[in-house]
């Protein structure tokens, strides 16, 4: 298992009252799987994403990421883990406006302590892979939404993470551009990257192997999808098991 969550709790304190965002959540994700997480807002999807991405620590319970007990780590080790094993893709791209495309992609490598020439070489490769090799020197605000998301994906992949987390990656894109991004994710999945994707869009969910539905901080349903193997292309999806 790449991800193993056991009885995971996350409680927020807001002005005296407690908000239980995650309530004794159990979830296992094997390496190489493409999982979609769905659910209404307030169901704990974002909290789960932040915990999976090592941006946050659980109040109680156990989280093992690639053999590392995450709940016990201090900031420095947590940051290192985030840097090495996790890549984030956000709905609003979250590129740094002052830096060029190439510099944005290099940023995780900066924190990983990679030397500048190697950094530039890797950024070039990554941008080639997402089809943006001529855009390296541009600023993010000179790119279209789809291009920005490709840069963000290149950045997320910079340290060859085992886990790629995406929070509504197509939410700010038109459907055609979104399709391109999903194809990119599909390629990454084929290459063996574990993908966890949060979305409201059932059309996005149909690309994945497995759909986890959440409600009130718990897993409501957990279904495997066998869409592409079945050769269906209608957009309808069939649940198995």
């Amino acid at each position: 298992m790449l991800i193993d969550l056991q009885a995971l709790r996350r409680v927020y304190h807001m002005g005296g009252s407690e908000v239980v965002a995650l309530d004794e959540l159990d979830l296992q994700i094997p390496a190489g799987e493409f999982v979609t997480i769905m659910g209404p807002s307030g169901s704990g999807k974002s909290t789960l994403m932040h915990l999976l991405g090592c941006l946050d620590r659980p109040t109680a319970g156990r989280y093992v990421l690639d053999g590392v007990e995450v709940q016990a780590l201090q900031d420095l080790e947590l940051s290192r883990l985030r840097n090495q094993k996790v890549g984030f893709v956000f709905q609003s791209f979250n590129l740094i406006a002052q830096l060029s495309v190439s510099e944005n992609v290099q940023l995780p490598l900066v924190y990983a302590g990679v030397r500048p020439p190697e950094r530039r070489r890797r950024a070039q490769e990554l941008l080639d892979a997402v089809g943006l090799c001529q855009r390296q020197a541009h600023r993010p605000n000179e790119l279209s939404g789809g291009e920005r998301q490709r840069v963000a994906i290149a950045r997320a992949l910079a340290n060859r993470p085992k886990l790629l987390l995406a929070d509504e990656p197509t939410g700010n894109l038109d459907s055609k551009t979104g399709l391109g991004i999903m194809k990119l994710f599909e390629e990454l999945h084929q290459d063996g990257t574990t993908l966890v994707l949060v979305t409201h869009d059932p059309g996005v969910a149909e690309w994945s192997d497995r759909v986890v539905r959440m409600l009130d901080g718990r897993v409501e349903s957990d279904t495997s999808v066998r869409l592409r193997e079945a050769g269906a292309s209608s957009g309808e999806w069939r649940e198995v098991g």
Binding site: L78, S79, R80, N83, Q84, I96, L107, Y111, R155
Partner: peptide, 9 residues
């Protein structure tokens, strides 16, 4: 953003 990418405190 920097923190998400792996910057420590």
């Amino acid at each position: 953003i920097r923190r998400a990418i792996g910057a420590s405190e």
